[in-house]
Write a protein that binds this DNA or RNA. Sequence first.
DNA 1: TTGTATGCGTTATCAC
DNA 2: GTGATAACGCATACAA
Lengths: 344, 344
Amino acid sequence: MANPKKAQQNTILDIAEALKLSPATISRALSGHPYVKEKTKNDVLKMAAQLGYRRNNMASGLRSNKTHTIGLIVPRISMFFHAEVITTIQNGLHKYGYNLIICQSNDSLDMEKELAEILFSSRVDALIAACTLHTVDFSHFDKLLLNGTPVVFYDRVPLNEQHAAIIKGDDFRGGYIATTHLIETGCKRIAHISGPLTSNLYQDRSSGFQQAMEQHKLPVNKIWVFHQELTHTNAREAMRKMFEGEVTPDGVFTDNDTSAIAALEFAREKGINVPGDLKIIGYSNDPRTSIITPSITTIEQFPDEVGKKIVETLMDLLKSGGNNVDERIQPIIIPVQLIRRMTT
Amino acid sequence: MANPKKAQQNTILDIAEALKLSPATISRALSGHPYVKEKTKNDVLKMAAQLGYRRNNMASGLRSNKTHTIGLIVPRISMFFHAEVITTIQNGLHKYGYNLIICQSNDSLDMEKELAEILFSSRVDALIAACTLHTVDFSHFDKLLLNGTPVVFYDRVPLNEQHAAIIKGDDFRGGYIATTHLIETGCKRIAHISGPLTSNLYQDRSSGFQQAMEQHKLPVNKIWVFHQELTHTNAREAMRKMFEGEVTPDGVFTDNDTSAIAALEFAREKGINVPGDLKIIGYSNDPRTSIITPSITTIEQFPDEVGKKIVETLMDLLKSGGNNVDERIQPIIIPVQLIRRMTT
DNA sequence: TTGTATGCGTTATCAC
DNA sequence: GTGATAACGCATACAA
C-alpha cells in the first residue's frame, strides 16, 4: 500500500535526464508529435511508464491554451433526463480525449452565474449548459463566447442567441401530440399543468397545447391552466383546486412526470377512475412512470440522442476553432414520441 | 449579444498597468492577502470587475500547487443514492470554495483506473471515490496517495487501506435488520438476492443476513441465495428459478431496490400475493419503491449524511495537509434504517 | 504596504 | 530529428 511522505512528482525533466535527451524531445514524444524517431519515442514512453510520469495538465494547459476539458452546467443531475444526457456526453467526449466538469446550478440563477465564472476561470475548452427555469438573460455566458469558447445550450435554451449552438427537444410538437392524444382518446375538458413561461420549454409545450385545442375546437379553461414550478406539491395543489369545482377536467397534461405522478396519486386517493374518468399524460418518460399503477402515458425525449448531438456539435465547433462562429448557428431539434400507457 | 472575434484575456498585468501598481500587489489584493491597503484593494477589485478579469486557474494552480478542485469517481450518477450524495458533496464543497470534477466509471475497472490517472493529471487537491463492484485491487489510487493527495472512499471501499479515509453505510446491520424484519413478520423461507461478493457491500449485507437467520434458527437454502450483478433481468431470472421449485420462498431480501421492483413485478404477474404469500424488502430507499403498488419496504442509507461526512472528513484532511496521514484512519460508519411499507 | 525577481511544468519557436 | 530557450499567468521569498 502507498506510503505517503512527501510529494515527488516526476516531470519531463526527470525523463529527459534519465534518457540523456532534452525536455523538448520528451514533450514531443509524449504528445505524439510526428518528427520523433520511433525508437526515441518508445524509449520515452517506457521511461515515462517506469517513472510513473503523468503530464501536469495545468502546465500543459497554461502553455498550450487548451485544457481538453469541457464544462457542463445542469439544474440537477438527479433529474432522469439530465442524468441520461450527461452520461451520453461523458462517454462521447471521453472517446475524443475530453474530460467533463459537471456542475449543478440547483436551478438557482446566481449559482449558474457563479459556475459560468468558475468554468471560465478553469479555461474550459467549451461549455455545455442547460439553464435554470429563471434564466432569461444569458449574458453571463458572454465572457466565454467573447473569449472564443464554444457554448452549447440544450433543453432550456436562449431564444435569440447568435453565437451559441442550441439543441432542444421538439417541445411544441410534444405539447401538441400529448394534447391531441388526450382529445383522441375522448377528453373534452383538458387541464394543463405547466412550468413557468420564462422557459422556452413551457412556452413551446403550451403553444402545442393551445394549437391542439384550437384545432379540435375545444375551449381552454383558464382556471385549468397552471404555470408554476413543476414540483410534486404544486401539482397536487393544482389538482385539489380543480377538483373542488363543479365541473372537473377529464384529462390532464402535465409538463413533467413528477407532476403526472402527483396527479395520479391524487386521483387514486379521491377514488377518481383513471383512465375511465380522468386521463393523465406526463412528459419525459421518467422510469417511475412505467412502474406506477396504472403506468403513465408520457412523452419520450430521447436523452441519448440529445447527448449524442451535443457531442457531435461540440466536436465540430472545437475543430473549426471558432471560425464558423460568425454565421448564425441553426438550432437543432430532436424529435419526441408519445409513449402510450395505462392512464389514457 | 457577444461578438466573438479573438481571445482577449485580461491578466493581472493589465490590472497592474491600468492602476500603476505591480502585479504582485494585484495578486495579493485579489487573494485577500492581509498586507494590502484597504484603498488599494478596493481599487484593484473595482478595476478587475471593470476589465472582466478572472483568475486563470491553471497559472494559479501551477504556481501554488493547489487547484481548489476535488475529483469524484462514481459508478453511475443516475443511481439515486449516488446522485444524492454527489449533490450534497457539491453543495458542501462549494461553501469552502472547492469545485468538484464528477466522473463516471460505468462500473468498469479500466475506466476507473483511467479516471484516477486523469484526475491525477489535473492535480486535484483530493479524490473521492465510490469504486466499481469489481475493484478488489486499489493500487491505482496509490499514485495520488503517494503524492500526498487525500483520498476518501465511500460506499464501495477497500477493506485494508491504511492511508485513505473510509465512509460507508452500516451494511452488516442493514442486512441484519432487513432479514430480521422478514422473520418477525412471519417469514420462514427467506431468499437473498445479493451482489457479487467481491464488494464489501454485499459481503457485509450477506453476513447480516446469515447472522439473522442463524440467530432465529432458520435454515439458509443455498439455492435461494444469489450473488450476481443486481440488475432487473438478473433478479427476474432468480425469481423465475426459485418459483419453479416445489417449495418456494415466503420472503425475499434483495440488495438493491431495482431487484426488489423486479421481484415484485414477477410476483404480480404470477398472481403471488404480496405481502400475503411473499414478503419483499429492498435496499436504498429509491424513490421508485414508494411509488410502486404495493410500496416496497426498504433500507434507508441516508445519502445526505454520507455526503456531509465526506465533506467534513475531506476538509479535515486538507487542513491538516497530510500530516495525520500516517496514523491509521478509522472507517466511519453511517447508520441505516428500516423503512416499512406495504410489501411486508 | 508595495515592488522585484524567480520559478511552477510544459510547449512553441527557433536554431542546429 | 533534436536541442536551447522563451513564454504561458500567477504567487511568493525577499528586498525596500
